[in-house]
């Protein structure tokens, strides 16, 4: 579904992504794990067309346009790190912004209902200004807003960031529910254990390079990965 080949990203003199290649298959959860500054967000932002890059990004066998709004139009939506919700708008208006490129009013209405079903908290706060929501609610709003664009592929950037452990569990359950809706998910996470436990496939990104890949269950058992990312000591 999504194929990234030999992707390079530079920020000024910094070589942030060095020849990254990944493959995402339809209906899967693919996760990219790695420490802070490894280039995980850069990878997602390159796919979203938000930053300049060299290399090939193909989506359903077509080269992905290099403009953010055209990427959304082709069916890819990012739920960005730090949520980036519109704090000045109501919850409902935020969701409406998610459907900005769509004109199928009837389907939009159905998606509103689906999102409110998935996140009952948002329904309760429909008319509330989004800036007054708690961190967890804002994360739900960002995910709901992403779903409103009716994407095939969802890029999730650090959905658990800054949330309480109990809430993190909820968010990961919701990610599985979104997968069950038939969506494909590319998940970037620092919480490697959580990410690997729900993913089908995983890549490890270190200093802009893919250093390991495989099925998520394999990587979960891999000793070097356990030591580096899962906090286990094997000796």
């Amino acid at each position: 579904m999504l194929k990234v080949e030999d992707l390079n990203v530079y920020y000024g003199g910094i070589h942030a992504l060095r020849g990254v290649s990944i493959d995402v298959e339809q209906g899967q959860i693919v996760t990219i794990i790695g420490s802070n500054g490894a280039g995980k967000s850069s990878l997602l932002n390159a796919i979203s067309g938000m930053i300049k890059y060299n290399g090939l990004i193909e989506y359903e066998n077509k080269t992905l346009p290099h403009h953010a709004h055209k990427v959304v139009k082709s069916g890819i939506c990012q739920v960005p790190e730090g949520r980036v919700i519109f704090a000045n708008l109501t919850v409902h208006e935020n969701l409406k912004m998610g459907a900005y490129l769509r004109n199928d009013l009837k389907k939009i209405q159905e998606d509103f209902e689906r999102v409110y079903e998935l996140f009952p908290r948002l329904k309760e706060r429909e008319k509330q200004i989004a800036g007054t929501l708690s961190g967890g609610e804002q994360q739900m709003l960002a995910m709901g807003r992403g779903l409103m664009s009716a994407p095939e592929l969802i890029l999730l950037d650090e959905p658990s960031l800054g949330l309480a452990p109990l809430l993190i569990n909820t968010i990961f359950e919701i990610i599985l529910e979104i997968k069950a809706m038939g969506k494909t998910i590319l998940l970037v996470e620092q919480n490697a254990f959580k990410a690997l436990s729900i993913a089908d496939k995983a890549y490890v990104l270190e200093q802009g390079q893919i250093t390991a890949q495989g099925s998520a269950s394999e990587l979960l058992k891999d000793e070097t990965i356990q030591e580096a990312y899962l906090g286990k000591k094997n000796k």
Partner: peptide, 10 residues
């Protein structure tokens, strides 16, 4: 409020 957020929404 956020030009970046808008761009992410298409």
């Amino acid at each position: 409020y956020s030009a970046k957020g808008s761009a992410f929404m298409g």
